[in-house]
Amino acid sequence: MKKLKSFLGYIWAVAAIIIALATFFGQSYFSRALVATTGITVNPRYSGGEIIKTVDHGNYKTAMHRPVFDALIGQTKEGFIQINWAPAAGLPQVISEGFDYNSDGKEDFIVTLNTATGKATLASSNPAVLDIEKSYHLKNGWAVRVLLKQP
């Protein structure tokens, strides 16, 4: 038993060298495999969530993300929806665009964004749409987060 334990100890110690090498040489492979296996993504509170609708305006595109109410378990009462406009070079000085975030066929809110100053205003026609949380000057465009509450 002592000899077996000793043998296993040495095996494990030598394996540590192989693990060290594999960690660096296989980092890219292991990372991809882990992502593929677990399907892990960045939390939508940071990424804004999946894009559910894209509108092409010719010089620029609008991307509407899904409403984010994600909590650790279940959903929060208040959340947000993120709208992106890109590329920066094609954006007009003032963007004014309406959105139907719950796909009920009615426009829920209009966001007006001044791309020179970053000032964003909201005209809401749905009581679940609360306010502009913030506008963000991205590397290649702009984004706005609109605060929502659960309907």
């Binding site: 992502v35 677990t38 399907g39 892990i40 993504t41 960045v42 939390n43 939508p44 509170r45 940071y46 994600d70 650790l72």
Partner: peptide, 10 residues
């Protein structure tokens, strides 16, 4: 949640 609570790249 199958998500990472960090504002980085995966």
């Amino acid at each position: 949640t199958k998500t990472i609570i960090f504002p980085g790249t995966i």
